[in-house]
Design a binder for these strands. Structure first.
Lengths: 111, 111
DNA sequence: TTGACATATTCCCATATAAGAATATGATGA
DNA sequence: TCATCATATTCTTATATGGGAATATGTCAA
């Protein structure tokens, strides 16, 4: 079996760095495709294709305004990723504490 | 150009669902490969390959204990993902507020 | 050393890219 | 309707998968 499609879920969609850039730009304010092309230094078809992926997994929304199509990040779609990664937070805190404790123990034992 | 390697960073590594399962299991306590094979219902080579990817991006650590090799999630590696997704938090809060406000406005205008 | 257990690697293949080039679709104003 | 701007899709190609099968490597006990 091959790798899961980029459109299979938000995890796969944000694995692509350019798509993360796009999300960061579009969360501040909605932008037409052309503005993204200019900002990212990518060609227009590539941007459109990335936007399609993001749209399919619900990470961006679009609306037409005249000839332009305005895209915006749908931040809710990122929430599940934040929550999944959040389940590890207490563990990396533990690791930090352990390092800290060890450092303090060392400081005491050989001053 | 093809898709970035799964080993290129943590974002790509966790895009694979089985690898997220592995991380969830190994963050609670360290386990040998065989235990993962049993828990996941995957064959041993597949598990070893997933572990290799996770090791290469720094998401798991391993130590030998006799014939066994004990793996454990290195939670620090997930932190950048949590932080990146966290930059969108205020926006999904905003969206929720906006929906709420609109609902209240509607309730007033047509009661 | 040998046998057995535990894990890792290699080879194979169907599948899915991401970017570039070319083209198609959509919307507007004259 | 036509010309033009804006965006989307199709096609091609190099590359990287993930799982299955087979095999290699590593470690211990006797």
């Amino acid at each position: 079996m091959a790798r899961a499609a980029t459109t299979s879920d938000a995890f796969n969609a944000v694995a692509e760095p350019r798509r993360r850039e796009i999300l960061a730009l579009l969360v501040v304010r909605e932008l037409p495709v052309g503005a993204l092309v200019a900002s990212l230094g990518l060609d227009q078809p590539s941007v459109s294709k990335h936007l399609r992926v993001l749209r399919e997994v619900g990470l961006v929304r679009a609306r037409r305004q005249g000839r332009h199509k305005l895209y915006r990040t749908h931040a809710e779609g990122i929430r599940p990723l934040h929550e999944w990664t959040g389940t590890f937070e207490r563990y990396w805190s533990h690791q930090l504490n352990r390092v800290k404790e060890r450092a303090e123990a060392n400081a005491k034992s050989k001053p």
